[in-house]
Simulated assay, not measured.
Amino acid sequence: MTPMEKIRLLQQSGSFQFTKSLGQNFLTDENILRKMAVTAKLTKADAVIEIGPGAGIVTEMLLQEAGSVLAVEIDKSLIPFLQETLGHYPHFTLWHQDVLKANLAEWITAQRAAGFQSIKVVGNLPYYVTTPIIMKLLEDGLDIDLMLFMIQKEVAQRLAAKPGTKDYGALTVGARFYCEAEKVFDVSPQVFIPRPKVASAVVRLTRHETPPADIPDPALFFQLVRAAFGQRRKTLLNALGTMPDAVDKADVARRLNDAGIDANRRGETLSIEEFARLASVWPDSSDDKEQGTGK
């Protein structure tokens, strides 16, 4: 069954209507499906989580290529259709849940125990919840090897941006802390029903085997990243003044100097390694200042 035939069948069922608040846009192009399969490097040794299966168009491709597929769908009106059209696949599991609340770790552990060599996540993510989903998957420390998402092109560019570019920001650094991000190819609005108002892109996130930098305190690292990008036009000297333990500009300047970073630089120019270096000296610099003041 072609994507268009599947969408027509869903519409004829009478149980479903596109819900704008859920950001539902169903893919209709089989060439894009094939490119996604190649980009995700799918094999029968893979167990795959799909976020938001919709009409099951991407899901069926995953079922044909991978060894086990869990589809997590928030819209209850789609559940009967997915069960009817895909339930005959023995390696298909369907959850009616919000992926932000689902216990994915339990399913992943079961797949590893069953012998699957790789855990992958695939999804055509709603634009309004793209960042929360990606960051939750990363921050929860799930045993995931690769993620492939179709997302708003602007967000894909941010994920794959380089330091010093306009797209480089807190999301870039946050994602790169956990994985390598690549914008693989663009997707036209014309291959969706209904057509979104913005262009899309497919991004591949591959988990680092080893962290890009030694970060003893990730919470402090991310706090510094958020502060540095809180007001992009500000220098680090001014932006980091919002840190809870920053006493004054002289204090911030001292800490930046200890990290070997020019206080007049802006957050978007710092690499992950430089943010990590700043996070590693930030508490020590504070301790040194307090000890000196007490003399």
Rank of each mutant, 00 (worst) to 15 (best):
L278P: 00
L237C: 08
Q223Y: 06
S200L: 07
T210K: 15
V198L: 01
R204M: 06
F229S: 06
V184Y: 02
S285T: 11
R204G: 01
S271A: 11
A199Y: 10
K197R: 14
L236C: 03
S285R: 08
P283T: 05
E182T: 10
L240F: 07
D217L: 08
H208S: 09
T242S: 15
R204D: 01
F222W: 03
L205T: 05
I193S: 14
E273Y: 03
K183V: 01
Q223G: 14
R207L: 10
S200F: 02
K234A: 06
N257L: 13
R207G: 02
S280Q: 15
A181F: 01
H208G: 10
V198K: 00
R254G: 10
S271E: 09
P283S: 08
E268S: 04
D258L: 14
A276W: 01
G230R: 10
D186Q: 10
L224I: 15
P189W: 08
R233Y: 09
V184H: 02
P244C: 09
R232T: 08
N238I: 04
Q223K: 15
S285C: 11
T269W: 04
A259V: 06
L236I: 01
H208D: 08
F229P: 02
T235Q: 13
P211C: 05
T242N: 12
P218S: 11
T206F: 00
D214N: 14
F192P: 00
F222R: 02
V184P: 00
K249V: 03
I272N: 09
R266D: 01
G267Q: 09
S200K: 02
P194V: 12
R195T: 02
D284W: 07
F222Q: 03
Y178D: 03
K197Y: 01
A219M: 10
A213H: 05
V281Y: 03
